[in-house]
Structures are given as C-alpha cells and as structure tokens.
Design a protein around this nucleic acid. Structure first.
Length: 512
RNA sequence: GCGCCGUUCGUCUAGGGGUUAGGACACCACCCUUUCACGGUGGUAACACGGGUUCGAUUCCCGUACGGCGUACCA
C-alpha cells in the first residue's frame, strides 16, 4: 500500500513571493492533487533577522489568488500544527543533541571573527575548497578539539555555541532525484554545516528535515538551488534513523533572466518592464523593494497559472490551454525538464489574451462598469456588454478594455498625429456633410443606418468610402485604430457623433 | 577556485540510433478588413563543439566549451 502523498511549499517570509516560488508551489499543489494527497504550507522563519512583517500574509494571499489552496497551513491549521518554524523552535534541539550523542555532530564555539580568519587562511594557502570540514575542524574551537572539561565549562557557563554536523571525511552520498536521476556526491566536498544556531534556532537544513519527517512529507519538490545541499539532508535522515521515511526529492529547473545571465530577479522585472511577483508588494522597511504584481498588471490568475505550469513542464501533447483541473490531471514529475528556463513575458501576454477572449462577457462588463463608476460615468449594463464585445478581441489585458473604451465616453482631447497628417480637405468636406446627415437623424442610431447615411453621402459626392474612413475614425475617437466605426457611432449616438465631427473639423482645419 | 546540475529554432518545448527534426510564442509575407486587432494560409529559424561506440548518431559514452546553482550561525 502506497503512502498518501504529502508535499509542502516552504517559503520564508522575507518579502514578496517570487514568481519562481509560485511555480514551485504550483508544482507541489498539482502533484498532491493528482495523487489525491495533501498540500501544505510551512513558513520557514528560522532567521529572525530577515523576518519582514506582512510577508506571510502576502504569500498566503498570493497563492490564494492563484487558486493554490493548502490543506494544511498556518492559516487553516492541521494535524501537524504549528506550521510556522518559529513556533516549533523547541522541537529541533533534541535531534541535534541526539546526533551529538551518536557522534554525528558536535558543539562549536568559534566566533564569527575566527571563522573569518580560517577562511582567509585557507584561501591564502590556496586550499581548493576553503570550508569548515573534516580536516579544518581540528584547528577550530569545538567539542572535538577542546578538552572535555573545557567543553563542559563553556556549556555550563552559557557561552554561545552552535551545533555542526560531523561530515564524514571519506564517504559517498547518493540520492535518486526524480527529475535528475542518480546524483552522487563525495562527503569530502561537503562541509560541517551548522545545524543549530547560537540563538537556539535550527538552520534550514535541520528544520526542513525534522519537519518533513514530522509532517510525514513523501516528496520534496523544490528549486534546483537546493540540489547541492540535498546530500546533506540525505545524511541527516540517515543520522536520525529516518532513512525508511525519507521523502523522494525532485529539484526543479530555475527561472532565468530573459537576457544575460543568472536567476530571474526583481531587478529584471523593473529593467524589462514586467512583474516578477504575483501581487503588488509594499515593503514595510525598504520602499525600493516595492514591486508590481501580475494581478494588478491585469493578468488573470488562471492565465498566469497556465503560463507558469508550462515553464519547465509539458504535457507531452500539443495542448497549450489548461484549466487548473486539467493541469492536475495531466501533471507528472517525469515530464519536468532539467534545464533552466529563460523567462519570456510574451508568452504570458499571449496566455492572457487567450483567456480574455474566452471570458464571460458579463464578467468583463462588470469590470468595465466598475472602472466607469470610478470615473463617475453612467452606463447601462447592456451598453457595457456591447462595448466589451467590441473591445475584447483587440485586448490583452482587462485594462485595455477600459483604456480603449474611454473615447466612447469622453470626446477626444487630441488627435493621433500620424493619422492627422493624412487629414485631407476632400475627407473633411464629406465629413462636414455627414455630420449634418447625422444631426438630421438625431437621437439613437443603429450601425446599419449610420452606414447607410455614409454610403449615400459618399456616393453622392463620388468619393470612395475607404478614403474617408480613417478621417472619420480620427474625428470620432482621435485614434488611428479601433473597432468597427459604425458600431462606434451607434454607441455614441447620432448627435454626439455629429458634434465630434464638427469639433474635429474645427480643430484639424489648421493642419490642412 | 572547488562541487553539483544542465545544453534541440531568438524563447518555451516534442522527439529520440535510420524523421522532410514536430508544435507554441515572437518575427515576416499573404488573405480577410475602412484601420488596428482577431482569424486563416504560408515562411525564416535549432540538435554547442571534438572524440569515441555503431553499418548509421542529434539521440548512447567520454572530453571541451558555454551556462546555471551552491560554496553563510540565509533560506
């Protein structure tokens, strides 16, 4: 009988949740749901110096916006509560002590300065890997080098210490990563990582292993930046006697900068003009860390998720559009790629456009109505729906609908320069007559009628209808492009259309 | 530096010992159209390099190059 799948997303509350973190959460979620297991959120706040107020709320809110809901979390609780490592502080030390008793860890008393000196010394001696390890630890101040009496005294006096893992000098650790296959590392290349810090808090390495064990995690799905320390974690499971319960590992490829080198960062977003976070973020300490989010940029959560899901994973078919449910059904770890992914915002835009196109018109109309009431403009639901139908096929974002629709409510203040340059006296003369036709018609007018009037007019004046269309658009909207003009006249009404033409005639006369 | 991981069109990717190397985004052209967009059709464009193994390698192995990550009492 297979164990119930239990996976976790374990962010640390140091700021906004990066898009890469969202993807990691998503893959965990998809995997859990696919196997009818549980997805939990655990807050890794063991570094109190990096704690940022509001970050945890942000993370939870961001995931909720994405539709990633946890079965267990600090917010909803669960059988393994608490889900904040700071609240689990008392649980970790015992495991570190156990490792000391069994000879797999030791106390270390070195000061920061002494550690610094050691690194300098090793660097000067051109040591290949300057670290606190099986050979260098014998020159440091720890329970392996100090007389037993002195160790006892130091501990009794309350002197600060850390607990470090005693990395074997000559051994091999192997782990079978679900994405990468067998990874073999020699312990001689690993160092004596700190397990328990001098403030009594565990480091990530200890906390994550202890909690994953206690929370019965079956699969650890996390970013590739953890791959180098995975062998240490494997060793910890062994030392703690939990080998049989050790979760399987899957290390995800990283999201990389669109250009240049390195991981995708906040700076890339600022520089290239796209969000790197799901939601807007206001940093309580550093205003320069404020960031814009996909939500506020007008992306739909389902489009955003769809886009993210196909970064480093693919279904093996040509299907591109997936609902969350479809993603759950299609997802498998075997189809996760190994190579890093250069981030491409164009694909995200395309996804958003696809989703916008298929959005319910009533929903879009509600949005438009909301924007309108913000600007104190009256508009009926029916009219809003008509507008939405017109605007949505050339929109990528929700906000495009509003910015495009504005000229239906406010007459143009200025005119597109390129289009204005093509303004001809010929078109102007037709338009002057057409405005009169519209005025004569007065009141509401349908697109058919508007077209009929224009048709008659151009016929009578013997001018091709195509010649004056751009001018008409310019007069009516101030723009060079947009939806069908007759529909626009219908929406505007005959009188408003006529007066806009008059205004344009006046305004653009100079430019002739 | 050292360790680990990676490398198919510009980007995301499918594929895998014998294929016209497939799809999507972006780009270009044409069609549709009053314009823009949508839509449709078509197009440009890729197996990093060098050695093996093999009848045959883009696919398997080894190097090299390039890239990524790690190398904290950060996660």
């Amino acid at each position: 009988m297979e164990k119930t799948v239990r996976v976790r997303f374990a962010p640390s509350p140091t700021g906004a949740l990066h898009i890469g973190g969202v993807r990691t959460a998503l893959f965990n979620y998809l995997f859990a749901k696919k196997h009818h297991g549980q997805f939990l959120i655990r807050i890794e706040d063991t570094d109190q110096t990096r704690f940022v107020p509001g970050a945890e709320e942000y993370i939870l809110k961001a995931l909720a916006w994405c539709g990633i809901i946890a079965d267990e979390s600090p917010a909803v609780g669960g059988p393994c509560a608490p889900y904040r490592q700071s609240e689990r502080k008392a649980m970790y030390a015992q495991y570190a002590y156990r490792m000391i008793e069994e000879g797999n860890a030791y106390y270390a008393f070195d000061t920061e300065q002494e550690l610094e000196e050691m690194r300098e010394r090793l660097k000067a001696a051109r040591v290949a890997s300057p670290q606190y390890n099986a050979v260098t630890r014998m020159q440091m101040k720890n329970s392996l080098t100090l007389p037993e009496e002195e160790v006892k005294e130091r501990l009794a006096s309350g002197a600060p210490y850390v607990i470090r893992v005693k990395m074997p000098r000559k051994d091999e650790v192997r782990l079978n990563d679900l994405v990468r296959g067998w990874v073999v590392v020699h312990t001689s290349t690993l160092d004596d990582k700190v397990l328990l810090k001098s403030d009594g808090m565990p480091t990530y390495h200890l906390a994550n292993v202890v909690d994953d064990y206690l929370m019965k995690i079956t699969h650890v799905i996390r970013g590739e930046e953890w791959l180098p320390s995975a062998p240490l974690h494997v060793l910890l499971y062994k030392y703690l006697g939990w080998e049989a319960q050790m979760p399987q590992f899957a290390h995800l490829p990283l999201l990389l900068k669109p250009d240049g080198n390195g991981k995708l960062s906040k700076r890339d977003g600022d520089r290239l003009g796209f969000p790197v976070f799901p939601l807007n973020w206001q940093d309580p300490f550093k205003p320069e860390d404020n960031a814009s989010g996909y939500k506020e940029a007008g992306y739909f959560p389902d489009a955003f998720i769809n886009f993210l899901a196909l970064l480093g994973w693919n279904p093996g078919t040509t299907q591109e559009i997936f609902s969350m449910q479809e993603l759950i059904e299609a997802f498998s770890i075997e189809r996760i790629n190994k190579a890093g992914i250069k981030f491409d915002i164009d694909k995200a835009r395309w996804y958003n456009q696809q989703y916008l196109k298929h959005k319910d018109e009533a929903e879009l109309a509600t949005y438009l109505l909301g924007e309108l009431s913000k600007h104190k403009v009256e508009c009926s639901v029916e009219k809003a729906q008509k507008i939405v139908r017109l605007m949505k096929e050339r929109a990528v974002f929700l906000s495009d609908i509003w910015s495009e629709a504005q000229y239906l409510f406010f007459s143009p203040k200025d005119y597109d320069e390129k289009a204005a340059a093509k303004w001809s006296s010929e078109a102007a003369s037709v338009l002057a007559e057409y405005a009169k036709d519209l005025s004569a018609h007065s009141g509401s007018i349908d697109a058919e009628k508007a077209k009929q009037l224009l048709h008659d007019r151009t016929e009578q004046m013997q001018i091709k209808i195509g010649k004056i269309m751009p001018a008409l658009r310019l007069a009516l909207t101030g723009r060079a492009a947009g939806p069908d003009l007759m529909d626009i006249i219908m929406l505007l009404g005959a009188d408003e259309a006529a007066s806009r033409i008059q205004a344009a005639l006046l305004h653009l006369k100079v430019a002739v």
